[in-house]
Amino acid sequence: MTFSQQKTISITIDDVPNTANYEKDHFRPILLNILDSLKIPFTIFINEDKIYKTAWLDKNKELLETWVKNEHAIIANHTYSHSRYSEVGFESFIKDIEKGDSLTKVYASKYNKVVKYFRFPFNDMGNDSLQHIQIREYLKSKNYTIAPFTVESSDWMFDTVYQYYLSAGDTVKAKTIGQQYVDKTIELLNFYEKIAIEIYQRPIKHIYLCHDNAINADYLAEIISRLKQADYSIVSFEESLKDPIYKQKDTYYKKWGISWLYRYMDTQEERVKWMKLEPDISKIETLYNQINK
């Protein structure tokens, strides 16, 4: 099978639904409305415990259903409570997986959808090869496909700083952080594209990981516009998974949530070589750490 050289990317969104933002935004699903207006495919990874994080249970359930039924959305499991596999262990983690799609599957069935993808919180697949193999076998037995990604830009750090400035009434600094997030995302995508070209001698079908948060409600549309300006087509997650790179063996057996481009490398030395060349995000890390002291 041959693949065109056209550049493509899928948008995947973790930690859906953000019920705290929903309440703050007067029960308007701003990010979802923007995605819907753009008419692009996207995939959501759901943590059902978020439904119970505010007092508005019925409204939060309606929010989840609104995400699930959207015609452009693929639905996936992200555990119930966003637990970390390497910390909680196998038995506790599989309970969190099984609890994580009980309501989601009801809504998915209502709209003739199937929940067949799973993404690890923190992309933490275990401390060692034993934990990795154990959870892979379990997920396979449940007909789950592990959801990879190639690009992420620490939007959760940018979002924390962004919301901090908004809460302080400093819209100028907030806007600066928002623009830095857009620019850094494109810079990181260009870096991972460079890796792909060097290893595979062609553009690959990239998968972008971001989150249901305030900064994406305000800036993801600009990122998507920049992607289109750079001749990227926004394609579905399922379309991206047709790229043969995602059929490779994952040889990385640590707990850190690195890009699958790194996971497919043969040695840790090769990973480290490329990681040292990554675009610098130390400025946002410093601000994030200052805020979270």
Rank of each mutant, 00 (worst) to 15 (best):
L241N: 04
A174W: 05
A230I: 04
R226Y: 08
Y232D: 07
T185H: 09
E152A: 14
T251A: 10
Q163H: 07
Y252F: 14
Y246C: 02
N216F: 09
V161E: 04
V235N: 06
I234Q: 06
E238S: 09
Q229R: 11
D218H: 09
K184S: 14
W156C: 03
S153R: 03
V235W: 02
Y200F: 13
Y165M: 08
K175T: 14
Y246R: 01
D243A: 00
G169Y: 07
Q201L: 07
Q248D: 06
R226K: 15
D243L: 01
E152N: 13
S233P: 04
S153V: 01
K249C: 03
A174Q: 11
L166E: 12
I199G: 02
D250T: 10
L241A: 07
D243W: 02
F237Q: 04
Y252M: 02
I207F: 00
Y192K: 00
S154A: 13
Y192I: 03
M157W: 10
E238I: 06
K249H: 12
I245S: 02
D183E: 15
L241T: 06
Y232N: 05
A221P: 12
F191N: 10
I204Y: 00
Y165T: 03
S167H: 11
K173Q: 13
K194T: 11
V161W: 07
K194V: 01
I223T: 12
M157R: 14
Q179Y: 09
V182N: 06
W156Q: 04
I186M: 13
K175C: 06
H206G: 02
A168H: 08
H211P: 07
F158L: 08
K249N: 14
R226D: 10
V161P: 09
T176V: 14
L209V: 01
K175S: 14
L166H: 08
D218C: 03
E238Q: 13
I215E: 07
V182F: 10
E198K: 09
I215S: 02
R202Q: 05
I207T: 05
I223M: 11
A196L: 05
D212W: 10
Y219M: 12
D155L: 07
E239K: 15
I204K: 04
Y165K: 09
A230Y: 05
Q248A: 05
E152Q: 13
K228M: 05
D212R: 09
Y208F: 15
